[in-house]
Structure formats: C-alpha cells, structure tokens
Design a protein around this nucleic acid. Sequence first.
DNA 1: TATTGTTATACTCTATAACTATA
DNA 2: TATAGTTATAGAGTATAACAATA
Lengths: 156, 156
Amino acid sequence: MNSKPDIPPPMRDDTLRQFSGYVMKRAFHAIQGDVNATLAPLGLRMLSFSALVMIVDNPGRRQSQLADALMIERPNLVIIVDELERAGLIQRERTPQDRRAYALRATQEGHALYDLAMRAVQDHEARMTRALDPGDRLSMLAALRLIEPIQEPETP
Amino acid sequence: MNSKPDIPPPMRDDTLRQFSGYVMKRAFHAIQGDVNATLAPLGLRMLSFSALVMIVDNPGRRQSQLADALMIERPNLVIIVDELERAGLIQRERTPQDRRAYALRATQEGHALYDLAMRAVQDHEARMTRALDPGDRLSMLAALRLIEPIQEPETP
DNA sequence: TATTGTTATACTCTATAACTATA
DNA sequence: TATAGTTATAGAGTATAACAATA
C-alpha cells in the first residue's frame, strides 16, 4: 500500500544540462535574486552596484566609457547614473577639454557606501559559492572569463 | 612623439571580476545572444527551445510541472506553450483523470525540429566553449550546478 | 561629419494578483 | 478550500532611432 498523494517524479532535464547557457541561467537567476536582496537595504541593485564600483575604481571617466566597460547601451546607463547622482553617491563634472562629456566621480557618501556594499556582496559571494572549494570557484571564474570575449565574426 | 588619437586605457574591472555574478552575467550575455541568433532561423528562442526539449524528453506532463522544472512562473509559461502549439510543435491534450490539466506532447513536427535545433545548439555550445578544454568545461558545468540549488532560508 | 549625453520607445523576461473551471 | 490554467499588468533589463550640443 502507498498512501502518498501521488507526487509525480521530477521532470528530467539532463538533455538541457549539457548546455552551458541552461546551467548558467539557473545559477545566475539564484545569484541575481540573492545579490539584489543583499543590496536592497543599501538602495542599490546589481547594476547600480557595478556602476558605483567602476566609478570609484576609475575616477574621472566618461559615461560612454563606463557603458562600454559594463557592456550596456549608453541610453540605459543614463538612468543608472541619474539614480546614483540623485542618491548623492556620484557627481557628473563637466570636463573642460570636451564640453560634451561628463567626468564621473564618487562622492564621500559614494565611497562610504562602496565599502559597506563591498562587504555585503563579498558575504553574498561566499554564501552562493559555499558548496565549491576555493580552487573550484577560481577555476569556474577563469572558465567563465574564457567564454565572455567570444564575438560573432564581423560581416562587413 | 605620439600621433595616436588619445585612446584612453580600458577601465579596470578587476574588483568586480572577483564576483561570480558579474563574470557570469557577461558570459551569459554572450551565450544568450549567440543561441538566440542560432535558433532564430528555426523560429525558436532560448526559452521556447528549452520548453520543447523538456516536452519531448518528458511527454505527458502538465504545464505546472514544466513551469516548476524550468523555474519560470506559470503565467509566463502559458505564452511559450501557446507559441509552440501555434507553431504546430506540441499539443495540449486534456487529461481524463483531471480535467483542469493539460498533458503536453510534441507532434511529429516538434520531434523533427527538436533534432534540427539540438544539432544547431550543440554547435553553438562548441563555439562558445572552444577556448576551454573539455575537462574544464565539464568542471565549470559541475560548479555552476552547485550554485544553482542554494535558496534563501525559509522565514516561517 | 562624428561623438556625448539624452529622450522616447519597444521588446523580452520576470513577477504578482485575480479570474474560471475543475477537484 | 485548493489546484490548473489563464488573463492582465507591472517591473526590470536590453536595444535602436533620433535629437541637441559640441567637437
């Protein structure tokens, strides 16, 4: 006899699990949820945290350079920079050499939040990768970096 | 003398590169673009391909089971299943035991496209991971699978 | 002409509430 | 009352075209 309420067996996804994209999407989904929950009390999200870190680490760069580095389109970066500026974390300074461009710099508040958020995100990273040896984690990061730069061939 | 047109050095992102989320997002961005370009001629996207594969490999399951397996919300799956059904790739069969539910099954056309798309996506996978040894690729997949199941602790 | 930042817009993916029909 | 599928809707993230100011 079996009194269980007829729980069906889980669906098999081993065909999809051979593909990096499938496995990566699921891992990234978990990470994004956790990091956004981690950053929400600080008023940041994954993207605004990334932008703040880049501005603190690379003071004086233009928005277009930051957009290139973060691999997001210029129009989408405008909203993130607006957000960081409204929060008092960074400033847009007009550059004398090229009056079209802004130089981005973190304020004192931006530097302070950087320190806070960095610790929180490092805890998040440790939490998400606690099932991996440190060596396996570094190997995974190295492997992911080898996927990233692959581009479609230009068709001129 | 230097006649170069003042190309600025690339921005440093080594602080962010310590974080799995940052590196994974960039790798996934590349993969998603390539797989969607790969599948577009077949009328599929990453998500509809995943759903088709799951239905072929697990015939007769309900939509809610498929949504759970693919970790997407039921309402969002409806659109994908609609799309696959309109394309003649799958069918919704009413189940006699529970007339609320549908059993999902691939049609002959669905099986044929599965074979085609599988080969195309396997080529895509080889293209995206060509910079990795086969062993490193498998280690990466294993590491990513260890990140996936981590959940926030329940707060009851 | 080309570039910087911007506005407007659209498309995909994701997430939640609420409905219907069945159980 | 609970569940399966659905509808409607809202929010992110991403992408392109076009504009003003400046080079």
